[in-house]
Amino acid sequence: MSSLPGTWDLAMRSPIGTITATMHFVADGDTLTGVATGRDEQVPLRDVRVETGPGGERVTWSQSITRPMRLNLEFEVIVTGDHMEGHSRAGRLPRTSVTGRRVPTP
């Protein structure tokens, strides 16, 4: 079972500044789904996949946003405990650094 499910605060460093979002990942049996919230919109996560490796869990997903502009984003991060680090890419634009921390449950 993946350690991914839960709520995560993400920060993406981009050419227009740091963009923040909250990701909520949910496990339903062997299927992972999720929702991203940020910039006054909430969007579903598509094709959430986890591969376990020696350095942690490699997690990939895609999502579409409309703010600050309409983009289709692809994410690839490594999750280790309550931290994630990796990158996102929007089409032909340069990769954007992504970091995240799990939000503690009360």
Rank of each mutant, 00 (worst) to 15 (best):
G86N: 04
H83K: 09
L73W: 02
S62D: 08
T60A: 07
R67D: 11
V77C: 04
Q63K: 12
G81Y: 02
E76S: 12
T80E: 03
T66G: 10
P68N: 03
M69W: 15
G86A: 05
E74Y: 10
R67L: 13
G91D: 12
R92K: 15
H83P: 00
E85C: 07
G86V: 04
S62Y: 07
E74A: 14
W61V: 01
H83W: 04
V59L: 01
F75W: 10
E85N: 10
V79F: 05
F75K: 02
M84F: 08
Q63L: 13
E74I: 10
M84G: 08
S64L: 08
Q63P: 00
E85R: 14
F75H: 06
S62I: 05
N72W: 09
D82L: 06
S88G: 11
E85K: 11
A90L: 04
S88N: 09
T60M: 05
R70A: 14
V59Y: 00
S62A: 10
N72Q: 15
N72G: 14
G86L: 03
T80N: 04
S62H: 11
P68S: 06
I65K: 00
M69G: 13
S62M: 10
F75N: 04
I65G: 01
R92S: 15
E76C: 11
R92Q: 15
D82S: 05
L71N: 11
S64W: 06
P68A: 10
R70H: 12
I65T: 05
R89Y: 08
H87C: 09
N72S: 15
E74W: 10
T80F: 03
T66V: 14
A90P: 13
T80G: 03
H83E: 03
G86K: 04
R70G: 12
T80C: 03
Q63N: 11
E76P: 14
S62G: 12
M69N: 14
G86Q: 03
L71G: 06
I78Q: 05
P68I: 14
I78E: 03
A90M: 06
S88M: 13
V77N: 01
G91V: 14
Q63W: 08
R70E: 14
G81P: 00
H87Q: 11
M84T: 05
Q63A: 14
M69E: 15
T66Y: 08
D82V: 04
G91H: 11
M69D: 15
R70Y: 09
M84V: 06
W61M: 01
T66H: 09
R67I: 11
E74D: 15
E85S: 10
V79Q: 07
T60V: 07
S62W: 08
S62C: 09
S62V: 08
E76D: 13
V79T: 02
G86P: 08
M69I: 14
A90V: 02
P68R: 00
A90E: 05
P68V: 13
R89I: 09
V79M: 07
G86D: 01
G81S: 01
M84R: 03
E85D: 07
F75L: 04
A90I: 01
G81A: 04
I78K: 04
S64R: 14
R92D: 15
